[in-house]
């Protein structure tokens, strides 16, 4: 069995469409990469609930209720599963309703403007 690389490069950050997942397959491991502003996020394309390809789901924000108005809260982006709509904090991978459910996340870094995803953290 071929060992997966420690990292995978997915190209220039500014070529990633804002808020739109790009899924890369690294020897069978599907990873979704998305740009939010000047940051890149990477998650395993598998929902911990029923195994959905979660990266097909919408990226939203937390929704709040302030002063009698439903509002979109700035801050951490949220990934919602396209099947059962479970929501996860894109940065931590933690579910918004129970932190024991997590989507696997991967550390990213920018190398000369390009996004590198760390499959094994050091």
């Amino acid at each position: 069995m071929v060992r997966r690389p420690d990292t995978v490069d997915v190209g220039p950050l500014d070529e990633l469409a804002e808020g739109r997942m790009r899924v890369v397959d690294v020897q069978g491991l599907r990873i979704g990469v998305v740009r939010i502003g000047t940051e890149a996020f990477a998650v395993h394309d598998r929902c911990p609930h029923q195994g959905a390809p979660i990266c097909r789901g919408p990226i939203t924000s937390r929704i709040g209720f302030e002063g009698g108005v439903v509002v979109s809260l700035p801050g951490e982006p949220v990934l919602a599963c396209p099947w059962h709509h479970w929501e996860f904090d894109l940065r931590s991978g933690k579910s918004l309703f129970d932190e024991s459910y997590r989507v696997r996340t991967f550390r990213t870094e920018l190398v000369d403007g390009c996004v590198r995803v760390w499959l094994r953290d050091r």
Partner: peptide, 9 residues
């Protein structure tokens, strides 16, 4: 439907 239950689930 969106809330399909998987057999394995």
């Amino acid at each position: 439907h969106w809330d399909t239950d998987e057999r394995d689930h």
